[in-house]
């Protein structure tokens, strides 16, 4: 008697935005409470484009047209201090700081992401792969905090503006 081979955890999906992509089923994040604005979507994977090192894409596997850019909030807001409410700790089982990470949704304009949602960070438990967007009501953070332009970039832009002849 031959045992059935284990199901292959490596899946390939054809994404409207990113094309063909291979992922491991073990890397899927489940949002059991959904993602606000996208009712019914539960399974997501995290992707990165070769040309973008500061953006990760939260790609839905239930609706392939849905992908949200995520960024590390501390890259742009070093003083960011999200105080996660008790419901987040309990529902996501955030006992150990090593087990989870916090990302923020980036809201773009044509020139790339310029705002970050610091009011509702996405909290991902890396161990049990359960995630949830957690509103920090009363925190003073908003859903669209302007990402500060790095000083070097701002200086370069200013220099270029000066160099333009009248």
């Amino acid at each position: 008697m031959v045992n059935a081979p284990p199901a292959n955890p490596i899946k390939t999906v054809d994404l409207p935005r990113f094309g063909s992509c291979t992922y491991n089923e073990a890397d899927i994040f489940v949002f059991p409470w959904g993602l606000p604005g996208f009712d019914g979507l539960r399974a997501f994977i995290v992707l990165q484009l070769e040309t973008q090192d500061q953006i990760l894409w939260l790609q839905s596997l239930d609706d392939l047209s849905v992908a949200l850019p995520l960024g590390d909030p501390w890259t742009f807001f070093p003083d960011y201090d999200p105080k996660l409410p008790a419901f987040a700790r309990l529902s996501l089982d955030l006992g150990n700081a090593d087990d989870f990470t916090i990302m923020a949704v980036m809201v773009g304009t044509d020139g790339g992401p310029t705002f970050m949602n610091l009011m509702a960070p996405v909290v991902l438990n890396l161990k049990n792969r359960v995630a949830r967007q957690v509103p920090l009501e009363g925190s003073g953070y908003t859903v669209a905090m302007k990402i500060p332009v790095p000083e070097a970039v701002a200086a370069q832009a200013a220099a270029q503006a000066e160099a333009v002849p009248e």
Binding site: R17, L35, L49, M106, V107, V143
Partner: peptide, 25 residues
Amino acid sequence: ANRAAVPGAAAESTNVKAAPALLKS
């Protein structure tokens, strides 16, 4: 805000990869 974060339908021209290891505690 979440709906506004999803960009339009334009396809990306560069390759994409699953990036589970990039999420660090």
